[in-house]
Computed example of a mutant assay.
Amino acid sequence: MISGLTTLTGPSGVGKGTLIKNLVERHPSIWLSISATTRFPRKGEVHGKDYLFLTPEAFKQEIKAKRLLEWAEFSGNFYGTPKEPVLIQLGRGRPVILEIELEGARQIRDSFPATFQIFIAPPSFEELEHRIRSRKTESEDSIRKRLKQAKIEIEARDEFDAVLINRNLEETLSQLERLIGVK
């Protein structure tokens, strides 16, 4: 089983959250870090479970106080990883997974060079666009921003230790389990 820190990165809509949710359900010893964000909760999302929903002012205080391992602005909102809970879990020897954006992955690479970094890619850009649009949770402007960012992220996939193409949830989950040594 993995020990230490593993990051999962990929464009919005690629299925990172679903993969991680299934992984942690199958392997409860893996600890998933809860990211902080300034975006509004989507339907069904719960503060402290899905994200730590912060005001922009509160998020900026976290940055200023250096209480984040990484942070980035994405699609008009801030996202980041609170440092203390991750360090506590790593100190206990528990494997930790972070779901983070490209800029955050780059920051983590600098601060935790031994981190195992996995990029989750879509089967095609058209499929990614379909997935984002089918959520029906965002404005056309927000979708365009996410798709523009997705192109940048996909181009950076070679920076990662491994790339998984998420064509089928069960197959991708099995590949992820093999990569991190939990199957």
Results as ranks from 00 to 15, higher is better:
residue 4 G to E: 07
residue 6 T to S: 04
residue 6 T to G: 05
residue 13 G to Y: 04
residue 13 G to W: 02
residue 15 G to R: 01
residue 16 K to N: 03
residue 16 K to E: 09
residue 17 G to I: 01
residue 20 I to A: 06
residue 21 K to V: 07
residue 24 V to E: 06
residue 24 V to M: 06
residue 27 H to Y: 13
residue 30 I to W: 12
residue 33 S to F: 06
residue 33 S to H: 03
residue 34 I to W: 04
residue 38 T to A: 01
residue 38 T to D: 03
residue 40 F to Q: 05
residue 47 H to P: 09
residue 47 H to D: 14
residue 53 F to Q: 01
residue 56 P to V: 08
residue 56 P to C: 07
residue 57 E to C: 06
residue 60 K to Q: 03
residue 61 Q to H: 10
residue 61 Q to E: 12
residue 63 I to T: 06
residue 64 K to R: 08
residue 64 K to A: 10
residue 66 K to L: 07
residue 68 L to D: 01
residue 74 F to H: 00
residue 75 S to N: 02
residue 76 G to D: 03
residue 77 N to L: 02
residue 80 G to L: 05
residue 81 T to R: 01
residue 81 T to A: 12
residue 83 K to T: 00
residue 83 K to E: 06
residue 83 K to I: 00
residue 86 V to H: 00
residue 90 L to F: 10
residue 92 R to V: 00
residue 92 R to M: 12
residue 94 R to G: 11
residue 96 V to H: 04
residue 99 E to I: 02
residue 102 L to Q: 06
residue 104 G to Y: 03
residue 104 G to C: 01
residue 104 G to K: 03
residue 106 R to D: 01
residue 107 Q to C: 05
residue 108 I to C: 02
residue 108 I to V: 15
residue 109 R to N: 03
residue 112 F to V: 12
residue 118 I to M: 13
residue 120 I to Y: 11
residue 121 A to G: 11
residue 122 P to S: 04
residue 123 P to W: 07
residue 123 P to V: 13
residue 126 E to D: 13
residue 127 E to G: 11
residue 131 R to D: 12
residue 135 R to H: 12
residue 136 K to A: 14
residue 139 S to V: 06
residue 141 D to H: 15
residue 141 D to N: 10
residue 142 S to P: 01
residue 142 S to Y: 14
residue 146 R to W: 11
residue 149 Q to T: 10
residue 155 E to R: 12
residue 156 A to R: 11
residue 157 R to Y: 07
residue 157 R to N: 14
residue 158 D to R: 15
residue 159 E to K: 15
residue 163 V to S: 12
residue 163 V to N: 11
residue 171 E to N: 10
residue 174 S to Q: 13
residue 175 Q to Y: 10
residue 177 E to F: 14
residue 177 E to H: 14
residue 177 E to A: 11
residue 182 V to Q: 15
residue 182 V to H: 15
